[in-house]
């Protein structure tokens, strides 16, 4: 047996992996199997989007974490011997992928951003960031299955096709887990999704106090954009929600205009703004790395520059 396997937490992520999986499956002349948790109602959606087989995982007990499925999936893999296993690079997905890779004694390309298959020798070249985003590492895997986690929303989602047929198979229940969930707490603040925003003004550690974020907000308002931040602002100071943190461990943005205020421009942050059309920065240190990654910069104190900039923008727009 062989095939492309897919594991994701949500319908949206599964569809994205299905678009990659279907392309690989047709290139390599094999079929696609998708794991589905609990809700069998969407099995037909998966088949319409490219799955040949849906493997239904039995619903877990309230206190069981998602990794309870590891033994079930590993047992299945040992008999089915898949070629490739695609997993969405969510917190739980990355954990499950690494542990499955250990059980199956195989390699895993983490947080893949691009992959291509060679029909002839059947190798898969996979790209990912290394050194905080300063480098792109290309890897191949010499063991089976080739495992890879894919950062959600890197690829297009698969579209529904008519007249697709597939099979649905139930898997055995998961055994009791080694760890238990005592409580699930939702996030306190829901932030706006800025990954598709046209203009992003980013707050960096050059901002001294939480109240001073108003300077960033005013410039964003003048430009008709949204605000984002660097990791220290969200994760150390907790002044803004983590969903607004731009960079390798946060989100990627691709606005027409990005302006960093008091952002030093470390590579981990820059990796999240590579696809911006125009990058700008205000920093009082003329040697700050961000100027090397910017199209236009102002060397100066943001407390002085930001208000003047907001006014100049308003005047320009009339």
């Amino acid at each position: 047996m062989a095939g492309i396997w897919i594991f994701a937490e949500s319908l949206e992520q599964t569809k994205e992996l299905l678009s990659i999986g279907s392309t690989l499956a047709s290139k390599l002349g094999t079929m696609t199997s998708v794991f589905l948790q609990g809700n069998t109602g969407v099995a037909d959606d998966y088949i319409a989007c490219g799955a040949d087989e849906v493997l239904v995982l039995t619903a877990l007990a309230e206190d069981q974490p998602l990794d309870a499925y590891i033994p079930v999936i590993a047992a299945e893999a040992q008999t089915a011997d898949p070629d490739i296993f695609l997993i969405a690079a969510t917190v739980r997905g990355k954990d499950i992928a690494a542990r499955l890779a250990a059980r199956l004694k195989t390699g895993l390309c983490s947080e893949c951003i691009g992959l291509k298959a060679d029909e002839n020798d059947r190798t898969i070249e996979m790209e990912r960031f290394a050194y905080g985003g300063a480098a792109i590492q290309t890897v191949v895997c010499s063991t089976r299955p080739v495992m890879v986690t894919i950062i959600p929303r890197t690829f297009e989602a698969a579209a529904r096709q008519s007249d697709r047929k597939g099979t649905i198979r139930e898997l055995p229940a998961a055994p009791p887990s080694a760890s238990t969930v005592l409580e699930r707490k939702p996030k306190e603040t829901e932030a706006k999704d800025i990954s598709e925003s046209r203009i992003v003004v980013c707050a960096g550690r050059g901002i001294e106090k939480k109240e001073d974020l108003s300077l960033v907000q005013e410039l964003a308002a003048a430009l008709g954009g949204e605000i984002g931040c660097t990791r220290p602002i969200s994760e150390e100071s907790h002044w803004l929600p983590e969903d607004l943190c731009i960079g390798i461990s946060g989100i990627s943005v691709k606005p027409a205009l990005y302006i960093g205020l008091g952002v030093s421009g470390q590579v981990q942050h820059i990796t999240g703004i590579r696809d911006a059309k125009v990058i700008c920065a205000v920093n009082k240190d003329e040697n700050a790395p961000i100027f090397g990654a910017s199209d236009y910069g102002i060397v100066g104190d943001l407390y002085d520059v930001a208000p003047k900039l907001s006014d100049a923008v308003k005047n320009m727009k009339g």
């Binding site: 480098a135 590492q137 590579r274 090397g292 002085d304």
Partner: peptide
């Protein structure tokens, strides 16, 4: 299990023009 085929710089072409404040 994984072989690194290449490790290349993720570079970016930008204007790098700065203005005084």
């Amino acid at each position: 299990a994984l072989q690194t085929v290449s490790m290349t710089a993720a570079s970016m072409e930008r204007n790098c023009i700065t203005f005084p404040a």
